[in-house]
Design a binder for these strands. Structure first.
Length: 499
RNA sequence: GGCGCCAUCGUCUAGGGGUUAGGACACAGGAUUCUCAUUCCUGUAACUGGGGUUCGAUUCCCCAUGGCGCUACCA
């Protein structure tokens, strides 16, 4: 019957948080799945903490992760007149009242309650205050807040949470809570109710930390006689010690993960699986698959620890899945991205690769990338792994100690023989020999066998000479990408170093 | 302290009145390979405790315990 409408409720008081990302994701998936709409609503009522740069960061982050919203962005800060209207209405109907208790007074009471092991509740000092007195104080400009007058005839609030089932909270736990600092400054619990109603929100999907706000909001919905949306409270994302994911103990900014070379797809994939799953054994999901399979009733109730190792694995799976031209595109985007530029950890000087508008340079980069791709877990590793392809052939620097390999029976002393052997094979190749890894393999295997060596005895030192490293892509692949000429220069360099 | 939420391998989780409690990450071992990585095998590893209900409970109920969250003139 009625349309599904959700809202993304970011609060621009910090950079795009991984927890916000997960909440937005579940809202997005739910809306998409049900052919509904998603409204972007900036919850920026806290003027002191809200900043434009955070808002921009959140907005662009949501898009980078592949999510979108419908229509214009709503700002709570632009809706003050509406809040004022409803605030005035409540005040006029005697459903809310001005309270002149100071924070200091209240804090004293709070501490006392704490000491006496009681729950603190506002003592309703101003609940039935004389209208004239209130007006006088107001006129005198005394500081006050507006409190909602808790109905005395309701004993408990029960709502059906889409992930938790029935949740009941006794009204004795609540007090006359503050709904606004003043007529022009409404507070969160008040604003969201007005907004959810105005924007026809059908489902409020948010973090578990909002469960205790829910009864207050329901009370307000009822007060206005409005339809109450369906609530769904998501499990929290946790630090390793099971506390709520926090800056102190974890990276929490989406930008940080992007800068660390995690793909948006992998982040989405990982986040989706933190607290939700499809009962089958699939682990890798595209956004489309997630949309198709998502349902709130398979969302978990318990919090989930953010396990970076699993994220790394998912990221690598996504990289392996990519074809080389896509990988090339992504890696370039990554190097040039804002989040990398902003990061203090990484500064990739891509002038190393030459002018990439030049086709030759571009093709060489792609070939190098192809050799490196399946061994990268994070995009941040790629640059370093490519450097060996761009160092000066004749002066390649490395320690000859790495020629030692127990299993291959190679060492600094035997490397020269190996390299000279390999060099001879290459020099004796026909002019029309196609210098590919496959062809080279055939030749090398044959010659090595003839000479009575083990493959590794020749190929390992050759790798070292070609790459300057004990770990690298395959030796034959290196030969192919460098070509005959460059390979020989590096081999000669290797021979020189052994002497 | 009060109130609320939650509870299966180290982690993410499947499952559910009778199962060898399944998968994935991580870890360990092995195979393949010229190294590393990849790939492929194999292994270690879990139902918080106590009461019920029941022929039978890890599963349902209650209690306890533990963890977390909220407890603002933040959101």
């Amino acid at each position: 019957m009625s349309e599904i409408i959700v809202r993304y409720p970011p609060s621009p008081t910090g950079f795009f948080h991984i927890g916000t990302a997960r909440t937005v994701l579940y809202n997005f998936l739910f809306a998409q799945k049900n052919k509904g709409k998603a409204i972007m609503r900036m919850e920026d009522t806290d003027k002191n903490r809200s900043e434009k740069q955070f808002e921009e960061n959140i907005l662009s982050g949501i898009q980078t992760l592949g999510m979108k919203w419908d229509g214009e962005i709503e700002y709570q800060s632009k809706r003050t007149e509406i809040y004022t209207k409803y605030l005035s209405q409540l005040l006029a109907e005697d459903k809310a009242y001005y309270c002149f208790s100071t924070p200091e007074e209240l804090n004293t009471l709070r501490e006392l309650a704490q000491k006496e092991k009681r729950a603190f509740r506002y003592p309703e000092t101003w609940r039935g205050a004389d209208k004239k007195l209130v007006q006088e104080k107001l006129d005198a400009g005394e500081k006050s807040v507006i409190r909602y007058k808790l109905p005395k005839n309701v004993s408990e609030i029960t709502f059906t949470d889409a992930v938790r089932g029935e949740v009941t909270i006794k009204l004795t736990e609540l007090d006359d809570f503050v709904i606004a600092k003043n007529l022009e400054t409404a507070l969160y619990n008040f604003c969201v109710v007005i907004d959810d109603h105005d924007m026809n929100i059908s489902h409020v999907i948010r973090g578990e930390d909002h469960i205790s706000n829910t009864p207050k909001q329901i009370l307000l919905f009822k007060e206005f006689g409005w339809e109450i949306p369906t609530f769904a409270h998501l499990p929290l994302i946790l630090n390793a010690d099971k506390s709520k994911l926090s800056k102190r103990k974890n990276k929490v900014s989406v930008d940080d993960y992007l800068a660390d070379g995690f793909l948006p797809e992998a982040l989405i994939n990982f986040l989706a699986l933190l607290g939700w799953n499809t009962s089958d054994e699939q682990e890798i999901f595209t956004m489309e698959e997630l949309v198709e399979k998502f349902s709130l009733d398979r969302v978990h109730k318990g919090g989930a620890i953010f396990d970076i190792e699993k994220l790394k694995w998912i990221n690598q799976e996504w990289i392996k899945k990519m074809d080389i031209s896509e990988f090339y595109k992504r890696v370039l985007e990554y190097w040039k991205s804002e989040y990398v530029k902003k990061s203090e950890k990484y500064n990739f000087d891509i002038s190393l690769f030459g002018d990439l508008n030049n086709e030759k340079n571009s093709i060489f980069l792609q070939e190098a990338l192809a050799l490196v791709k399946d061994r990268t877990k994070q995009l941040s590793e790629v640059f370093e792994n490519l450097e060996l392809f761009y160092t000066e052939d004749a002066t390649l620097a490395y320690s000859t100690d790495i020629y030692f390999h127990k299993k291959m029976k190679t060492s600094r002393e035997t490397a020269e023989e190996s390299l000279k052997f390999a060099k001879k094979i290459i020099e004796n190749l026909d002019d029309n020999f196609k210098f590919t890894a496959d062809n080279l393999k055939t030749v090398f295997v044959e010659k090595i066998k003839e000479a009575g060596f083990k493959n590794g005895y020749i190929l390992y030192p050759l790798r070292v000479a070609l790459s300057g490293s004990e770990f690298s892509p395959g030796t034959l692949e290196l030969l192919e990408i460098f070509g005959k000429e460059r390979s020989l220069v590096r081999m000669n360099r290797g021979i020189d170093l052994c002497q």
